[in-house]
């Protein structure tokens, strides 16, 4: 394994057997990573009872080609997807807006108490949702926001992570550029909208992708403040897989596959931004 600490050079060079053996290793590891997903697809497609009777083989048994459609209607997936989409859209839009505004204040505006505010903002990064869960559930309940869009989104409308990341991008903008823009009569809003955001678009996009990922995948919070089935997001709807009777089990399994599709699309089409966002913390250390 450690023979591969570096790239082997031009793909057209090097002995054929060596390249072939790397492909073999890569394929074997791919099978290992993908096996759980493959078995989930097999399980979703199979008629549950027949599959178990056949001794749980590696291929689907008594295929139900309409399972994804049935999951959509019977499993209430359509409603859950729509709710998750709305909640995610609100959270991502709000996080982008609040993060960009506060990042701008922390990098281009001068005012008393700015540093103290910055540290207060960053302190929220130390507080995971799990720690503040009980008081927050209490707050949301007393506002009457159980089973509501407000309840599902309110605590996540701002994030210090986004503020930090976008501020890093803004700090990279040369001061001269701001001064030149000011001479050209650009106020702060015009500068923010027409210069700062366009220049830092890659950072903003990377943060947007991460915000989407975490909003879409939320579990604990919706689980805590939703107690009516019709307010289930797609993620907490997945809990039903264990509760369903055996004949319906594959509906829940199909739901899990559908729930992962939007993020899978993100991975395939916006991989660059996703990777940049995920590694942002690692690079900063």
């Amino acid at each position: 394994m450690s023979a591969g600490a570096t790239a082997t050079g031009d793909p057209t060079l090097g002995p054929v057997w060596k390249r072939a053996s790397w492909y073999a290793v890569l394929s074997a590891l791919s099978v290992l990573v993908l096996f759980p997903i493959y078995m989930t697809i097999v399980r979703a497609l199979s008629t549950p009872r027949d599959y178990v009777q056949r001794g749980q083989p590696l291929y689907p048994v008594a295929v139900q080609p309409d399972i994804f459609g049935r999951a959509w209607t019977q499993g209430d997936l359509g409603r859950q997807m729509a709710l998750s989409a709305v909640v995610t859209a609100i959270i991502v839009t709000a996080q982008l807006t609040t993060s960009i505004l506060s990042a701008y204040a922390f990098s281009f505006l001068q005012f008393r108490g700015r540093t103290a505010m910055f540290y207060l903002f960053m302190a929220t990064l130390m507080l995971p949702l799990e720690v503040t869960l009980i008081p927050n559930v209490d707050t949301v309940q007393s506002l009457g926001w159980f089973n509501s869009i407000q309840g599902l989104t309110a605590p996540f409308l701002a994030t210090a992570f986004g503020t930090f990341l976008i501020r890093q991008g803004f700090l990279g903008i040369p001061r001269d550029l701001r001064d030149a823009a000011a001479l050209d009569g650009f106020g702060h809003l015009a500068f923010l909208w027409r210069v700062a955001i366009p220049i830092t678009r890659p950072v903003v996009a990377s943060f947007g992708v991460i915000a989407f990922l975490s909003a879409w995948n939320q579990y604990l919070w919706p689980r805590a403040i939703v107690n009516e089935a019709k307010w289930n997001t797609i993620q907490i709807g997945l809990k039903n897989v264990g509760a369903a009777n055996v004949d319906e089990m594959n509906i829940g399994v199909a739901a899990a596959i559908i729930a992962a599709l939007p993020v899978l699309a993100l991975l395939i089409f916006l991989q660059r931004h996703l990777v940049r966002g995920l590694t942002a913390g690692a690079v900063k250390g």
């Binding site: 590891l29 791919s30 990573v33 993908l34 759980p36 997903i37 078995m39 989930t40 990922l213 879409w216 995948n217 579990y219 993620q235 907490i236 997945l238 809990k239 897989v241 829940g252 399994v253 739901a255 899990a256 729930a259 992962a260 993020v263 899978l264 993100l266 991975l267 991989q271 996703l274 990777v275 995920l278």
Partner: peptide, 16 residues
């Protein structure tokens, strides 16, 4: 392929 499991939330991984 190796990165693909990031597409799975904790809940999806649990169903898998």
């Amino acid at each position: 392929i190796f990165a693909s499991t990031v597409a799975s939330s904790v809940a999806v991984a649990s169903v898998i």
